[in-house]
């Protein structure tokens, strides 16, 4: 066979191959070195609950180990509530979901992953902690915003995300509607006019609650931010450094972020027992204490009493009573062609 002249530079190709081998080996080695935990749960949750569940997971792992001798590692996934529900439907293997709205858990149930009637399997509508919608204003409350009616005054800029995409924003919207409906003695026409005036004062409609908070806090836009109570506390504590104040309206809505075991997943993975215990732990005194520490309103009277000073008293209405449940509220207000589509014209 004739000699093929050897090209001079062969080594770079080889070096390259060696480099890839090294990197690949590194990656594979680290991927296989997962913790040898006997039980692993995945909690798919919404955006602002990360710190809450970090503490809950650690406490639950201690308690479960003490009770059963088994190690349990709970992993977390966070994102917009609707997006997270979508991911679970598409195959994200969540053992439990802890979302912002019952509507999102309903969507997962409709896909056949959670048994119907999930809301009655756990106490308190399957919502172990509650929250509400409050106002965050700038230090000293320069625009003197005290209640919902102040939000529709001319010249007030209100920051709230888009209720079509954000769970938190739907609570904001429904709270405003409930206030207007109550004040007008049940006149829906007037309530519609009220939310129309309110959204006319919204300069930017962010897609999520975190985006809206960033707009208000970091970019300094707007006079008042409608926010989850726990988000407002977080903004004051973590970002504010005395630059913001929380204003509590006389009436607001009772937000009940629900939790549910994802039946199809736990049955396949054989994790039902641990997943059930995990959600029940949220209702225990220890779980409630952790929730209260993270600015969620506890259900347990004993814990609520200890944190009474933190959570101001206000009248809270429920979605079920004012709107006849989430499905009805969704269809009437947020579906395409619903009330929100009719009252909101961007760029006015």
């Amino acid at each position: 066979m004739p000699e093929i002249p050897r090209p001079q530079h062969r080594s770079p190709t080889r070096r390259l191959a060696a480099l890839f081998a090294c990197v690949a080996a590194l990656g594979v080695a680290s991927a296989t070195r997962a913790a040898p935990a006997p039980v692993q749960l995945l909690n798919v949750s919404y955006d602002p609950t990360r710190e809450l569940y970090e503490d809950v997971n650690a406490a639950f792992a201690r308690q479960w180990k003490a009770r059963t001798g088994q190690d349990v590692a709970v992993r977390q996934s966070h994102g917009g509530s609707g997006k997270q529900a979508r991911a679970v439907i598409d195959g994200l293997e969540a053992d439990v979901v802890t979302l912002a709205l019952a509507y999102d858990v309903d969507a997962v149930a409709k896909a056949g992953l959670v048994a119907p009637g999930w809301a009655s399997r756990l106490p308190d509508n399957a919502a172990p902690y509650t929250s509400t919608i409050v106002f965050l204003v700038r230090k000293g409350n320069p625009k003197a915003i005290r209640d919902w009616d102040d939000l529709v005054k001319p010249g007030i800029q209100v920051i709230t995300p888009n209720p079509k995409t954000s769970g938190g924003a739907r609570w904001n919207y429904l709270a405003a509607w409930a206030h207007a409906l109550e004040k007008s003695g049940g006149d829906e026409q007037k309530a519609t006019g009220f939310v129309r005036a309110l959204y006319a004062n919204v300069p930017v409609l962010d897609s999520g609650a975190r985006g809206a908070t960033t707009t208000f806090v970091e970019r300094g836009i707007g006079d008042v931010l409608l926010a989850w109570e726990n988000e407002a506390f977080l903004a004051v504590e973590k970002l504010g450094h005395g630059a913001f104040e929380i204003v509590v309206p006389a009436t607001s809505i009772l937000a009940e972020p629900p939790v549910a075991v994802v039946d199809r997943v736990v049955d396949r993975r054989g994790t039902r027992e641990a997943a059930d215990a995990y959600l029940r732990f949220l209702y225990s005194e220890e779980g409630q204490e952790i929730a209260a520490r993270h600015f969620y309103r506890p259900r347990l009277a004993a814990v609520a009493g200890r944190y009474a000073a933190r959570f101001p008293k206000l009248r809270l209405v429920t979605v079920d009573r004012v709107f006849g449940g989430w499905a009805a509220a969704q269809a009437k207000h947020f579906a395409d062609g619903g009330v929100f589509d009719r009252i909101y014209a961007p760029g006015r």
Binding site: A24, L26, G27, V28, S30, A31
Partner: peptide, 8 residues
Amino acid sequence: RLTLLVAA
């Protein structure tokens, strides 16, 4: 680690 693995 994951980024390195994916790229690798």
